[in-house]
Amino acid sequence: MSKKHHLAMNVNGDDYEFLCETHQSLLDVLRDELMLTGTKEGCATGDCGACSVTLDGRLACSCLVLAVECEGAKIGTIEGMARGDVLHPLQRNFLELNGLQCGICTPGILIAARSLLERNPDPSETEIRYWLAGNLCRCTGYDKIIRSVQAAAKEMRGA
């Protein structure tokens, strides 16, 4: 029997240790080992963005990262987006503007949108659409997602 790798990483500010096999993705470990199931699997090939997380501050598909690569990494997932009782403006605007229907793509889209707004607080509609092109949504037709991001951006700019 092969030995598993023993690693440590930080998720949403908390330190975790875990064991994994070489082929297990960061997504597998988040969901199956750490029970952080807010990050979703839609394809496991980097084509849908449902598993989006931040990895050392960068937006990435957790299905395209092996867990063994993550020793000492800082991971951000949907579970760490709200601050205590206070939802992130993106979360609140998605709720208020119906930026979600079934909700399966929502965690990935919120993480991706947050990453956009951190780099570009005032993105155009086109910039939002291209930044989110890696996040498939099959319910909404994207309209209300884009509007939710625009509204959150505006709010965060204090405009």
């Binding site: 980097g46 963005g49 989006s52 990895l55 960068r58 937006l59 990435a60 598909c61 395209l64 990262v65 991706a112 990453s115 930044w131 092109a133 890696g134 996040n135």
Partner: peptide, 9 residues
């Protein structure tokens, strides 16, 4: 080369 997420890697 792929999405923002893909290009991050």
């Amino acid at each position: 080369i792929g999405s923002i997420q893909v290009k991050a890697r």
